[in-house]
Design a protein around this nucleic acid. Sequence first.
DNA 1: TTAATTAACTTGTATTTACAAGTAAATTTG
DNA 2: CAAATTTACTTGTAAATACAAGTTAATTAA
Lengths: 238, 238
Amino acid sequence: MAHDRSIPQHRRLYDILRRHISEGVYSDGDLLPSENELCRLHGLTRPTVRQALSNLANDGFIRKHQGKGSIVSLMPKEIGILSVAGTTSAVGGKNLRTDILEKPRIIPWPADFMFPLTELEKESGCVYMERLRLLGNIPVFYDITYIANINLPRICARKFDNRSLFAVLRDHYGMEIKGGEQRIKAIEASGKTARYLRLKAGEPLLHLERKMLTNYTDHFLYSSIFCNTEKYSIFGRF
Amino acid sequence: MAHDRSIPQHRRLYDILRRHISEGVYSDGDLLPSENELCRLHGLTRPTVRQALSNLANDGFIRKHQGKGSIVSLMPKEIGILSVAGTTSAVGGKNLRTDILEKPRIIPWPADFMFPLTELEKESGCVYMERLRLLGNIPVFYDITYIANINLPRICARKFDNRSLFAVLRDHYGMEIKGGEQRIKAIEASGKTARYLRLKAGEPLLHLERKMLTNYTDHFLYSSIFCNTEKYSIFGRF
DNA sequence: TTAATTAACTTGTATTTACAAGTAAATTTG
DNA sequence: CAAATTTACTTGTAAATACAAGTTAATTAA
């Protein structure tokens, strides 16, 4: 037990394989080393390895086939906002640029917020920010983010430009997204939304309302996302 | 081992608990029996029980909390088309009515099909059907389904009215949906689509293109789904 | 009464062992 | 040479065991 015991071994293997996949050590369609081989390579037992692989399969990075092996299943080049890890990592970050429209600032929660709030959240106020995400100079996402202002010192001073919001939350506050729920609607573009996404008023547009759970109980992350799906579709696995 | 050995025990427990949840034996927010209690109740060991619970958690039916237990997390009443099991089971089937617009018939695959097809699929031709799904008399889904005509005898004679298509495939052909991928776009209603969904031409509308994997390798199920999200949102967990 | 501690739960992690079942390639057999 | 069989892989299922870590409620001490 020479390793840091705070991070489970199956999680560590998950992270390694996930990084290898995203860095191209394994390509789409490749066979991962077999479970027994991974055991030998990392000095783990099969159940531990299997848990890592099972999580990778659940998150859509591999597909397992009995008798054959685990096959790397890379996300297509389309936009994977429906995936767990958030936009930036799903697209691979290659052509995605993020513009900050409104830097994070503390405001009271909007009346008639899209999700019900706990008392603690209401008292704490909320961190508000607006971002525009462009894929090859085409604006595709207009994100409005709300986070309850609980244990997030100096968040208004952070830089969110070229990093995923999720990465900042993880690195500075140890906050990890564990899942969430979302509602999707097709609506008509109008006003600010149309302007940012370069759509004419009345053109169809996707609207997502998301509530994300974190590793901190009762601390959620909310966002309202408007998507221009004219050129890019939203892609998801299930 | 008095049971049918063809269905794994963790799967059987999964099905039992899933049915109990959907039938209201456990309600939203309820604590499921503890893992050890489920072991005693069903005569299983903890790893087996844990696998069933893990799958339930992955499919969004429960949330697990260390030290606390497994909490039932019922799907809201909104439409859960993004969930694994298909539309009917996600909504609970209560207010959902299915109208058959075009009974299943064998046709050649459309040119420029939305997904690439294998040679086997192209040779086999495809089973085509159109359905309209109404929620409280409001049309919400206009489904066009395509299945490669492989080992599906008498499928054109089956009744799909009040059952999920998935249930028919499972019961008559042993075909289970194991996952899939989908693209989502916001488009303008027009022609047949507008008429069926009772929308004016030009009104925004959701379009999903789905490819579903089954337990039979290389046998997929495709559907093109148009959703009226004016009144109901599409709901999903991740 | 109140606050701190303890005890009795819960799920999480990890090892070890064994066999079943699916796949693919090598081998044998015709 | 070709088809069938065998063999050596792969992942899937399942059990028994142990301890870690988080939560809650009961107990104890102030």
